[in-house]
Write a protein that binds this DNA or RNA. Structure first.
Lengths: 180, 180
DNA sequence: TTTCGCATGTAAACAGTTACATGATTAC
DNA sequence: GTAATCATGTAACTGTTTACATGCGAAA
């Protein structure tokens, strides 16, 4: 998915500015499926406007910088539908954490323990946020995707918690007592 | 992690050619944590050689193209350790599938069903491969990372299986006009 | 006989992130 | 007074993918 389609999708749920689109990929339901930066969003919005897929209404705000709010056009809805109908590309995943774990035998066990603990804390924080934080963007897929995210993060967290000690023991080499 | 570090890591487990490194990121234990292409691997190997982090021994092969086998140097091990010791960057995940599901209300439910079924099949195939196929690269982290991959994929698969029908019902319930 | 696997490499095209540039308001 | 939030945008840099270029051997 290119940034243009990502923006088009968000705008299809309601008029939004570049700034708000970025937030949707940081805070709202989209944060664990894609991410973008201003450097790609703003040029994408310009291109979408030129192609007639969105229209921009400038909004002067008192006590705030001007805001450019983009709304989707009929042509835009068509383009979005077309993009969503294409066979999806494979998921792209890259994890420094997992790569480091793969080579954990090269690091001092204390460092490995610290990394795992940080990761456990990260999952706990994220799950808390996902559970509590309102599913604000309103699309039916939102809950489905959100639920899948929670399921996956939970199992990752469980795995780390339950395998942490055994892994660390194994790395320390010696056959100390293994908790059963 | 840049491609140089990825290559260095693989080579640290045993001498390898560019071709073999690529395979490690496709088939072996690394396939679900990072990926690379020849276009980034070969230049990285050249750079690593110039920096003295690996050494290259050319191997003429009968009935096969020549092979360049790279081995890690002491300096290379140092550089790898340093790279692994840096605080890991956040995981980068991007999923066309999840993005499309987020906007599932725009598509005919039959298309959504097909996508979910394909995804279920994909997880099943991958899990079968991961369960059966030997974890051939031998590092202690291998089993740990592999196990986490299996846990996460399994929960994703379970989620899709158990929520598929309810999601589809929900979609066709409210958007009958879209579905012909 | 066509495709697949082995095997290396380059160049151009494309995409994405980071840093820069600007600046007001509000909350601590 | 300092940081955070709001708000837009460009340019340089970095990194990745794709296509190209080459070519043999083995299996289907």
């Amino acid at each position: 998915m290119d940034t243009k389609t990502l923006c088009l999708g968000v705008i299809s749920l309601g008029a939004a500015s570049g700034y708000e689109i970025k937030k949707a990929f940081e805070e709202d339901g989209l944060n664990h499926i894609y991410h973008t930066s201003y450097g790609s969003i703003y040029p994408a919005l310009t291109a979408l406007t030129e192609e007639g897929l969105v229209i921009c209404s400038e909004m002067a705000q008192a006590k705030r910088p001007d805001k450019k709010v983009y709304s989707i056009t009929e042509a835009g809805r068509g383009a979005l539908l077309e993009a969503l109908s294409a066979p999806p590309a494979e998921d792209k995943f890259r994890s420094d954490f997992l790569f480091i774990m793969f080579f954990a035998h090269l690091l001092p066990p204390s460092s490995v323990a610290k990394l795992i603990d940080q990761r456990i804390a990260w999952y706990e924080q994220n799950l808390a946020k996902m559970g509590a934080g309102g599913d604000c963007i309103c699309s039916k897929g939102d809950a489905f995707v959100h639920g899948m995210g929670v399921a996956v993060y939970s199992s990752a967290l469980e795995y780390l918690k339950s395998h942490r000690q055994a892994f660390l023991d194994q790395l320390s080499g010696a056959s100390r007592l293994v908790a059963e």
